[in-house]
Design a protein around this nucleic acid. Structure first.
Length: 433
RNA sequence: AGAGAGAUGGCAGAGUGGUCGAUUGCGUCGGUCUUGAAAACCGAAGACUGUAACAGGUCCGGGGGUUCGAAUCCCUCUCUCUCUGCCA
């Protein structure tokens, strides 16, 4: 959520930013916000004034009662009637204005960083770099959804989609044998790497309440993308970003604790309503998948350096896994609602001849922190530390299914699938055959 | 799931209608003392809003009500704790 004071003072920046995102009727919305904001402040001031008078009267009455002057007290009471009516009316209009203001404000996305390219869709994303050689596969190489049929235990598939359908439904695969072990190996590998890089491990709940959904920006508006347990009003998390970032909701962090670096593994759940069709076969898009997520909380002046560091970190993982990848800087039209700058990492899937997104690393600046009320008193050496919103960042490091798809496809040979060296100590085998 | 108790500032814990944003203790920060530290003593310190700056306003789990006036009374919701039951 943007801060009203920021919109007030940087109207042109806000307008330009929203236009970069192709946000509809940006000028109207900004005008509306500024008008409501002015109304809110005027009403607030008037209400404060009335309350101030009431307070004065009340203590006057208190004093009169104490001195035993009943008549004067009663007379003073009579004078409060009008104030009371006025304060009720003003409080009611203030409430309405605030509701309206909030309703508009939550529809406004974050302002893109200056380096974000303009554009409407994924086609306009900027390829920052490409790394690693795309493998040439042998004749008869197959996409992963075919490959998995060859190598499972007891003649079954390595990843059983049909069995998942029986248990749960489409998009909930069952990993078996070496498929399951490889999953577990990747989780441990990713967590260990993050620990080495200074991230502190957390294991958060995987269902969250509405306040948490609001804090990171999933709610309101994206209810349709999350599974919801109506009985308990809990949402199943679409990413560990939600519970981990919300650990710091309503928190004033001591400056000395910054930066915060957390890592957590969780399953993630996405309804993916309406997104079924071509390009979503096999592991490409699931309702449930595993992901290791890194979350950082930074002082504003450090957040972009942190973002670059996170990008480098994720790239390092992909290099260790020996996967060809590219890094995209998302354009204004393709960026998430809450982000100011996002890098997507995509790995090459050799049999599908496609890039698959396996990580998204974003800086949200104060957009989430404002919703979360995540702040710190930062000492700038010019008097007492000033309270300010912190910057939040997160990134996948990494999402498992597409990494697995890519390993299976890229490393296939007529004799089996080669496991990347770094994972061998974790899974205990070096080939699936 | 049943019964009871409770929710107050970083923590503990007073306050049951009138200068209460809130006694006190611990913790924190600054100072005195000390070679240094500890102890002791003195002092400082909430958040939000608002203003050029003052002032003013709001906040004692959330919401609503009674009253001139609510941390304090009433209703309601949520959560926590204790006991009983069940259970990975």
């Amino acid at each position: 959520m943007l801060q009203l004071a920021f919109i007030r003072e940087n109207k042109e920046t806000v307008l330009a930013g929203l236009q970069k995102r192709n946000f509809a009727n940006a000028p109207d919305v900004v005008e509306q916000l500024l008008t409501l904001d002015q109304q809110r402040r005027d009403t607030q001031r008037e209400l404060d004034d009335v309350l101030s008078q009431s307070n004065a009267k009340a203590s006057q009455i208190g004093a009169l009662m104490k001195s035993g002057d009943k008549t004067a007290a009663e007379a003073a009471k009579a004078e409060t009637a009008e104030l009371k009516v006025r304060s009720k009316d003003l409080a009611e209009s203030l409430r309405q204005i605030e509701v309206e203001l909030q309703n508009v404000l939550v529809t406004v996305p974050n302002i893109p960083h200056s380096s974000v390219p303009p554009g409407r869709s994924a086609d306009d994303n900027e390829v920052v770099l490409e790394n690693g050689a795309k493998p040439t596969l042998y004749d008869g190489a197959q996409p992963h959804w075919e490959l998995i049929k060859k190598y499972g235990p007891d003649g079954g598939p390595l990843i059983d989609f049909e069995l998942g359908v029986k248990i749960s439904g489409a998009g909930f695969p069952v990993y078996r044998g070496k498929g399951a072990r490889l999953q577990r190996a990747m989780i441990n590998f990713f967590l260990d790497e993050a620990l080495k890089a200074g991230y502190a491990e957390v294991q958060p709940p995987i269902v969250v309440n509405e306040d948490s959904g609001f804090g990171t920006g999933q709610l309101p508006d994206k209810e349709g993308q999350m599974y919801y347990v109506t009985e308990d009003k809990l949402y199943m998390i679409p990413t560990a970003e939600v519970p981990i970032t919300n650990l710091y909701r309503d928190v004033i962090l001591p400056e000395g604790q910054l930066p915060v670096k957390n890592v957590g593994y969780t399953p993630c759940f996405r309804r993916e309503a309406g997104s079924w069709g071509a390009h979503v076969r096999g592991l490409n898009r699931l309702h449930q998948f595993d992901k290791v997520e890194i979350v950082r909380i930074e002082k504003p002046e450090n957040s972009y350096a942190a973002l670059e560091e996170m990008s480098q970190y994720v790239q390092g993982l992909l290099q260790k896994l020996e996967l060809p990848y590219r890094v995209l800087r998302l354009c204004g039209g393709d960026m998430g609602f809450t982000s100011a700058l996002t890098y997507d990492m995509e790995v090459w899937s050799a049999a599908q001849q496609r890039w698959l997104e396996v990580s998204s690393v974003s800086n949200f600046e104060t957009y989430q922190a404002n919703r979360l009320k995540l702040r710190s008193k930062i000492d700038r050496g010019d008097g007492p530390g000033k309270m300010q919103l912190l910057h939040t960042l997160n990134g996948s490091a990494l999402a498992l299914p597409r990494i697995l798809a890519s390993i299976l496809e890229n490393n296939q040979t007529p004799d089996g699938i080669r496991i990347p060296k770094v994972l061998v100590p974790y899974c205990g085998f070096d080939v699936i055959n």
